[in-house]
């Protein structure tokens, strides 16, 4: 599951959660309710990154534009690299162990030496015929979760 938001005034479902207000109708934050979004959707586009300013993720890694089954569109790193043939594929979110500090503003860790005890939310392509498998994420992570 992903933690999203639904506006109680206009019904807009948003991801990531936003502390400031509804971008569609201008409702104040108290009108925005947390909502679980299935970490499941379809790939609209992919790009394999060859140059990156940060050691994590190690290059080459693939980023995908994913339209969630529940509506919002997001970008996320794929577990395994893919090319344009992956466009249209179903993906599901999963937590993967990562080494070192994450490339996120909310990861203020200074310890780059830890290995395997941190996780990031990434997406994996669901093999065709395996569409009924539920998302493999155990706990509902917020955007940018670290452990």
């Amino acid at each position: 599951m992903l933690l999203g938001q639904r506006c109680q005034d206009c019904g807009r479902v948003a991801f990531p959660p936003d502390p400031y207000g509804c971008e569609q109708c201008g409702a104040t934050p108290d009108r925005l309710a947390s909502v679980d979004l299935a970490a499941r959707g379809r790939i609209r586009a992919v790009a394999t990154v060859h140059r990156h300013h940060h050691p994590e993720p190690a290059t080459p890694f693939t980023v995908a534009t994913v339209v969630l089954d529940d509506g919002p569109m997001l970008k996320a790193v794929l577990v395994a690299n893919a090319d344009d043939r992956a466009v249209g594929a179903t993906v599901r979110g999963m937590t993967v162990p990562v080494s070192g500090r994450l490339d996120r503003p909310d990861d203020d860790s200074t310890d780059d030496s830890t290995d395997g005890d941190r996780v990031d939310l990434r997406f994996e392509i669901v093999p065709e015929g395996d569409a009924a498998t539920p998302p493999s994420v155990g706990t509902p992570p917020a955007a940018g979760m670290t452990s």
């Binding site: 502390p19 990154v49 300013h53 980023v63 970008k75 490339d103 503003p105 939310l121 917020a142 940018g144």
Partner: peptide, 11 residues
């Protein structure tokens, strides 16, 4: 102060 999933991976 709006965190998203991709972090710094999408420049």
């Amino acid at each position: 102060g709006i965190e998203n999933l991709e972090g710094g991976t999408v420049v």
